[in-house]
């Protein structure tokens, strides 16, 4: 494939990855920002979202869209409620101590993974996309006959992939409104900035934490429901989203929501675009080092403020 179309295809693919990543990482970012804990089980909440989506879709008859829509509502609610339960049952009792939270959430990770393996099984299971038309894309070039349009071999995307990008943007926008325009958002921000003062002003910090933890997990689940018609539900699929969202949150700057989105796009796109120039594994190595170097030279992250 010629350079131009190749770059365009890689960018489109990168945008899809970045959209999902932005949603998943946003979940982690909110938890990290407000509660200051590392949730190692975040990837498992993602995986649960995908598995539940499969379960819902396979129990809802009719057109594939019904199952998908049902999953889009049920999966995040269920996963969010479960995460809130984890918060009440475990995190609250270990007082959100950073080290203990790591051990505790590793424990939760094992529990969720093993339970899924025993019930859902080890196979990767597909969910049918509500719609999935292959869209061939044109490319323009100045040739001998002036400006010409042609259809390069292989340059295409699918309607569903474009939908994922749009859906992620809409959800992120809604989240932004929630946090900046509503009272709930105000309470969250107050808790994030100074939980003790917030408590003194009557904010039920404990309950806010549960909500936030549930919201974070729910966002991961939404990301998973969106991705599962492209990839498949599998009990080990939470591994990469965890690492990537973790990286995104830190690169973006701790607690900065715009930073998280920017970082998600930086990482998603760079992965795609660098792969145009190098062999796949080498591209991955360079992309990884590039992102690490961002942090080495800007330790507070892209949008983060210098630590006091």
């Amino acid at each position: 494939m010629e350079f131009g179309p190749h770059l365009m295809l890689a960018s489109l693919e990168g945008a899809v990855i970045a959209s999902i990543l932005a949603l998943t990482a946003m979940g982690l970012s909110i938890v990290f920002g407000v509660m200051r804990v590392v949730n190692v089980a975040h990837g498992e909440f993602f995986m649960l979202g995908a598995v539940i989506a499969w379960w819902v879709a396979s129990h809802v008859g009719g057109h594939a869209a019904f199952g998908f829509l049902a999953a889009l509502i049920i999966a995040p609610l269920f996963v969010g409620a479960m995460a809130a339960g984890v918060d009440r049952l475990i995190l609250k009792r270990i007082e959100y101590d950073p080290d203990r939270t790591i051990v505790g959430t590793i424990g939760v990770l094992y529990i969720i993974q093993q339970t899924t393996l025993m019930t859902f099984g080890p196979d990767a299971r597909p969910v049918e996309a509500p719609f999935n038309t292959r869209l061939a894309l044109p490319w323009f070039e100045w040739g001998e006959n002036g400006f010409a349009m042609f259809w390069p071999w292989g340059l295409s995307t699918t309607s569903y992939k474009l939908f994922v990008i749009v859906a992620a943007a809409v959800i992120l926008l809604a989240l932004w409104m929630l946090i900046t325009r509503t009272k709930l958002g105000l309470i969250m921000r107050a808790t994030q900035q100074d939980s003790e003062t917030a408590q003194a002003f009557g904010v039920p910090v404990g309950r806010v934490y549960s909500w936030v933890f549930g919201l974070g997990a729910g966002l991961a689940a939404i990301g998973a429901v969106l991705v599962v018609p492209i990839q498949q539900a599998h009990y080990l699929m939470g591994h990469d989203p965890l690492l990537l969202s973790f990286i995104v949150v830190i690169i973006g700057g701790l607690g900065s929501l715009p930073g998280t989105v920017i970082a998600a796009f930086l990482i998603g796109m760079s992965d795609g675009i660098i792969s145009v120039f190098f062999s796949p594994t080498l591209a991955k190595i360079f992309a990884t080092l590039l992102v690490a170097m961002v942090l080495v030279f800007r330790p507070q992250g892209l949008m983060g403020r210098r630590a006091p």
């Binding site: 973790f246 830190i250 701790l254 594994t281 991955k284 190595i285 990884t288 080495v296 330790p299 630590a307």
Partner: peptide, 22 residues
């Protein structure tokens, strides 16, 4: 990595290790 601290240190070491694995 020592240019960073805290969680950034975690991530930088994680990513270098990932690059090493690859």
């Amino acid at each position: 990595a020592l240019r960073t601290s805290g969680v950034a240190f975690m991530i930088v070491t994680l990513m270098f290790a990932q690059a090493g694995y690859l």
